[in-house]
Simulated assay, not measured.
Amino acid sequence: MANDLSVRFVDYLRQNNHLAPSDGPAERTGQGADVRQLKLWEVTSLSPTDFADEAARFFSFGRLTLQEMTSAEPLVGAFSPRFLRETMVYPCRAADGTTVLAVVDPTDQATLRAAQIVLGAGIHVKVASSEDVAIALNNSSSAEEAEAADSAAALPREDDIESLRDLASGAPVVRAVNDLIEKAVELRASDIHIEPFSGGLMVRLRIDGLLRPVAALSGVLPQAVVSRIKIIANLNIAERRLPQDGA
């Protein structure tokens, strides 16, 4: 069911003659269809830039240009590439230190709530065109792939592998991973997302369809935790893989 914001914005577009011809998707928006599935910016006769201008005007949000997005610090690493592509949002940190979420569809409240869980409640929402968000996401993806390829080029030595295996089999790591799995079962989580960074781990559980952050595993090395999970899954701990699309 379309939310109230979606309905009001579609009415606004209709009143200003910005909807596509009635034999297309726009006709279905008047029949109570889920406008999120139809992608609001695709059911109008407006260009991507004009649609962004209308959305920013209607919701009283600021506008974000492609130049502003590409010059800001990207925060895409906190989300899966698939999530960003499907929701068409671009998280970044502006020069003044504020966290900004560029959105194409301001009516998508579920995506805004998910972003707030990951980035914090103090994010500034601004509207960008679908074309600009797609370009910014592609640029960030290309940069991350290049960095990952450079990292993968340095294969671990045999003694490093044995050290990781020893750490992963140690009592602190085994206990930390077991506690995490037990917590996920207690909370009825469908997924456990563990993202290693240079400074630690980001741990999130998917509960009722939303990824919710939980306290990071303390007192254990991120590499040891990842290796422990690979051992449980009968994977090769020496093999390094590029992150796969999650949710």
Rank of each mutant, 00 (worst) to 15 (best):
A78V: 12
D34G: 04
P74S: 10
T49A: 10
A55V: 06
A78T: 09
G32P: 13
P21A: 09
Q31M: 13
L46F: 06
P81Q: 15
F51V: 01
T65P: 00
P81G: 12
N17S: 12
E27C: 05
S71K: 15
E54N: 05
E42K: 15
S45M: 13
S80F: 06
F9M: 03
L46E: 03
L64T: 15
Y12I: 00
A20W: 07
L40F: 02
V76N: 02
R36A: 08
L13G: 00
T29H: 01
D34A: 08
R28W: 13
F59H: 09
T65A: 13
Q15H: 08
R82T: 12
G32A: 07
F83A: 04
A78L: 15
R28I: 11
F83C: 04
L5E: 07
D23F: 13
S6A: 07
F59A: 06
V7S: 00
A72Y: 03
V7D: 00
S22I: 10
S6L: 00
V76R: 02
T29V: 06
F59Q: 09
S60Y: 10
A72F: 04
D11Y: 05
V43I: 15
R57M: 11
R82S: 14
D53H: 11
S80W: 05
M69I: 08
R28G: 06
F51M: 01
H18S: 01
G77I: 10
R36F: 07
G62Y: 02
P21Y: 05
E73I: 11
F61Q: 11
G62Q: 09
A72L: 06
S60K: 15
D23K: 07
T44Y: 03
T29Y: 01
D53T: 12
D50K: 09
M69L: 12
N17E: 13
S60M: 09
